[in-house]
């Protein structure tokens, strides 16, 4: 049985404040998931993540792998009929994790050859999104 509300209302407030989005605006049409380029690898997919947040299952989403797969391409926010931008929510969720000093990416994880090949831009963006 799904136990509702983890009494983490503070976290909900943080998510809404940091993302500027209102979670209850989402009516679960799934257009974000339908258009998301990385949804195939996400767990949970964007619409499910918002649903879990609506149900108060904050930890489940914060501990998920899905939030790290958002590439900030903004297709979801662009097409959402209710003006809910999941990209911003994902950013907020990552920020909450990162501000708790839990880094997602370390240099050791990255292939050395790749470091010398790939454009700087990739690393700056990745460190912005993945590290504390």
């Amino acid at each position: 049985m799904l136990e509702l509300i983890e009494s983490l209302q503070e976290i909900k407030k943080d998510i809404e404040l940091l993302s500027g989005q209102t979670l209850s605006d989402c009516y679960q049409c799934g257009e974000c998931t339908a258009g998301c380029p990385t949804a195939f690898a996400m767990e949970p997919v964007p619409s499910q993540a918002i649903r879990l947040l609506q149900l108060g299952k904050f930890n489940e989403v914060l501990n998920s792998t899905g939030i790290w797969l958002c590439a900030s391409c903004n297709v979801c926010g662009e097409r959402c009929p209710r003006g809910v931008d999941y990209g911003k929510i994902a950013d907020a969720l990552r920020t909450i994790v990162l501000r708790n000093k839990l880094t997602h990416l370390t240099l050791e994880k990255i292939d050395k050859q790749f470091i010398s090949d790939a454009p700087q831009q990739a690393f700056i963006a990745a460190f912005r999104k993945y590290t504390t």
Partner: peptide, 14 residues
């Protein structure tokens, strides 16, 4: 459509 962007650094396969 998105090329995958910076996700490349974390999850190159995706």
């Amino acid at each position: 459509e998105c090329c995958g962007g910076y996700v490349l650094v974390d999850k190159p396969d995706v």
